[in-house]
Amino acid sequence: MRLEKWAMGAESTIFKTEQWGYPIVLKWRPQKPYLLKDIDELLKKTRTNRECKMLTHARALGVSTPTVHWTDLENYTIAMDFIEGRQLKQLASTLPESRLREICFEFGQSVARMHRGNVVHGDPTTSNVLIDTKSRLWMVDFGLAEWNATTEMKGVDLHLIRRALETTHWDQQEVMLTATLEGYVNLLGSEAEPALSRMDVIRERGRYH
């Protein structure tokens, strides 16, 4: 089996390989020698476990996620479909504004689908939104996702989206945020309100605003 190092994430290394003639990726959470072993093992285990389940659960809620082929909890590895495409982070500045709006609207809808099922993504940055070669939107990286999400947790999710747009897409943040929140409200209707107002409260809560 040919393994190709494909990407280096914060907590994982992604390899690209093949299975039965189809491209797949292996997401491996390596040991981090600089962390206390107890903490490192607990994190790797719970996150691998959670990500595997959540990729499937989110799909049941109507969000496109890569299919999980197998999981090796001993080695903290998940094998899943390879998505041929690019991160929204990389694409955003290359797209015409109308197309960017469409994608963000769809991103907001995807987040809303999860929230409607009381699931939060936990790290909804534009690094974790993929657009494939057929212009389809995928959500990835569910290691920080959580079930039984409260209004507070949904508010944090929205706060993280706003933050990610401010820091990474500062020159397009208004267009992107507006479209994302429009998509969110479009799907949830009046149910969106509690999480949206909590997003503003959370922002004000930090030490120095």
Partner: peptide, 24 residues
Amino acid sequence: GGNTQVIAFAGNRFRTFGETLDIA
């Protein structure tokens, strides 16, 4: 004592990529 921030420079500003949601 008062701050916990992860900051990087982007687009003419020091941008706070991450910070504490409550206490430092």
